[in-house]
Design a protein around this nucleic acid. Structure first.
Length: 581
DNA sequence: GAGTTTGAAACT
DNA sequence: CAGTTTCAAACTC
């Protein structure tokens, strides 16, 4: 029974050793990290650790809204159970009735707790108080343990890395389900379940409270967004209501943001697996992943009705098929980078507002001065004021340009691959709206001293002027933000309308493949522009801040509503400087 | 608590 | 890389 293990077998023992963090090659590893690494094979695991949303100082009122958005745009990928000291699913402490319990203890009998079978070993902690037999995962058997670690790493360098990583697309909203937070991470290797439907804890994805992803090779998977079985599992009526209310309350924001990795994922084609219907793959992807049938035809077909599903109200324009999955109507419309974009736009507005107010104040002041010294030569002062205004204008323009430039870079990151966008620091433009410090910057900006090293005593306008500026800035920003939300709502309504229409059509004419209504490239990638910024150009002298046309596809929207004012031409794309049509 | 089922890990 | 075996957790009774 006892298999040879390349590890010196010592006196059987299962005496508990303190379950403390291990020290692999001099690098201590807390139980919270599974970055167990031996000796020179140490590798960082930070990149896989969940990124917390940037914590910002309590800002003025305007910023609370932006914080919400930012929270959505930021990586929302906390571990399924953040309180868990272990990163691997199976090592999560038992959570029953929402109450975390003591860390589990292994019951290994044959592995001596020196293989990944042992959850303690796998998570890089010593066995402590476990029920294991012949345990070598303790201080007394450190050499053997170390050898086992090396052996394991030799087999799989990532053996001790967290299995659950943030989704490349990353940004799905956290969503309460049955009191727990569904995490939008995904299993690095994916599960291979065959019989459990991925709805039992046999499934690592399920256990980690995440949805199965394209990494999985499971069969008859039911662990996907919108799965009725899964919902039945998670959604008690109560929880359902909560989740739905939560979703509805945040529909304009939550459902719209960064959903590319969300819902029944758009699975990449796997080896020997076709995504399309009529797959000839021997293992039948349809059987393995019914949700995979939902290819990424953005609105290529209408969804079948989703009766009694509270989420059905936000059914997406997914192809018709057995899949019962859904997506937010706003999915794909707004990407995380768009939020940054929006923030940038708001920053521009703020700067513009400050400038305008500054101009106005200066004009008033100048008028007064002119009254008082009508006969004195005010030419010098006027010239100076003018210089200040010009300098200030250039500052603002520079800032806005920086915002535009800034947005270009993150835009790229939303593409596939290791998406670090979620963990990326916010752009200066975004930060400008989210940090108290920026208030000072703005104040200084309004005084026209930034960037000029002109630290004169007249840096700040009068106190009341400053307050007025703040008020005005907030008013502008809130107004614009409200407009954006309204537009989103409109988009959602349009899309819903379109989906409903298509659903009816599809029900009559179903199998004909994607209608290409929205796959039309000529219109499919352009119309998102202006969602946030189309008012900017008209309002300001600054060049329009174009939305970055990454994957946003409002084609379905625009197709259904060619006259909706959300459309606007894209003067250029920040990404490549070319017009996308 | 014993037995069964399940799927990851380990092995061939 | 695929198939098989081993293993321990999850699950059932």
């Amino acid at each position: 029974m006892e298999q040879s293990e390349g590890v010196s077998k010592k006196a059987p023992q299962s005496e508990p050793s303190s379950k403390r963090q291990l020290d692999f090659g001099g690098v201590s590893m807390s139980s919270g990290s599974s970055g167990v690494l031996a000796g020179s094979q140490l590798r960082p695991v930070v990149q896989q650790l969940p990124m917390k949303p940037v914590v910002v100082q309590t800002p003025p009122i305007t910023q609370s809204l932006l914080m919400q958005m930012q929270a959505q745009a930021q990586v929302s990928h906390r571990p399924a159970k953040p309180e868990s000291p272990k990163a691997r699913p199976r090592q999560n402490p038992e959570v029953k009735d929402g109450t975390p319990k003591k860390q589990k203890q292994c019951n290994c009998k044959h592995s001596r707790c020196l293989k990944l079978y042992c959850e303690c070993f796998a998570s890089g902690i010593y066995c402590d108080g476990c029920n294991c037999v012949h345990c070598h995962n303790n201080v007394e058997n450190e050499p053997a343990r170390r050898e086992a670690v090396e052996s394991t790493l030799e087999r799989n360098p990532n053996a001790f890395r967290p299995k659950i990583a943030s989704s490349p697309h990353g940004t799905r909203d956290n969503r309460e389900e049955a009191g727990e937070v569904v995490i939008l991470a995904k299993h690095n290797k994916g599960c291979h379940c065959k019989k459990s439907g991925c709805l039992k804890k046999y499934c690592e994805c399920f256990q980690a409270n995440i949805l199965c992803s394209e990494n999985c090779r499971c069969m008859d998977c039911k662990n996907y967004e919108g799965s009725e079985e899964r919902q039945a599992l998670f959604h008690g009526d109560h929880a359902n209501n909560i989740a739905f209310m939560h979703q509805a309350a945040n529909a304009a924001i939550t459902g719209a943001i960064g959903s590319s990795g969300y819902g029944p994922p758009v699975f990449k084609k796997r080896k020997g697996q076709e995504l399309f219907f009529g797959s000839t793959a021997k293992d039948s992807s349809i059987q393995r992943h019914p949700q995979f049938q939902q290819t990424n035809f953005a609105g290529g077909a209408a969804p079948s009705s989703l009766p009694s599903n509270p989420d059905s109200g936000v059914s997406n324009c997914a192809p018709v098929g057995p899949s019962k999955s859904y997506r937010s109507l706003l999915e794909g419309l707004v990407q995380p980078a768009d939020l940054k974009e929006l923030c940038s736009v708001l920053v521009v507005y703020t700067g513009e507002t400050g400038k305008i107010i500054e101009d106005r104040n200066a004009m008033e002041k100048e008028a007064e001065d002119h009254k008082e010294n009508s006969l004195t030569s005010s030419n010098q002062e006027r010239c100076r004021s003018q210089r200040e205004f010009d300098a200030e204008r250039s500052v603002i323009v520079d800032r806005s340009s920086a915002s535009q430039t800034e947005k270009v870079i993150p835009a790229e990151s939303s593409s596939d691959g290791a998406d670090v966008s979620n963990g990326r620091p916010m752009s200066p433009g975004t930060l400008a709206l989210m940090c108290d410090e920026q208030d000072t910057v703005f104040a200084a900006s309004q005084s026209g001293v930034i960037g000029h090293g002109d630290n004169t005593s007249s840096q700040l306008p009068q106190g009341e002027g400053l307050t007025e500026t703040y008020v005005e800035q907030e008013r502008i920003i809130l107004t614009k933000f409200r407009d954006c939300l309204n537009k989103l709502i409109t988009l959602g309504q349009i899309k819903e309308r379109k989906c409903s229409t298509m659903a009816q059509t599809e029900s009559e004419d179903q199998i004909d493949g994607p209608s290409n209504t929205t796959a039309n490239g000529s219109t499919g990638t352009t119309n998102h522009q202006g969602l946030f910024n189309n008012g900017v150009a008209a309002h300001s002298t600054l060049p329009p801040v174009s939305m970055v046309p990454r994957t946003i596809n409002l084609a379905s929207v625009s197709a259904a509503s060619n006259n909706n004012n959300l459309q606007s031409s894209i003067p250029y794309t920040a990404e490549n400087g070319t017009s996308k049509q």
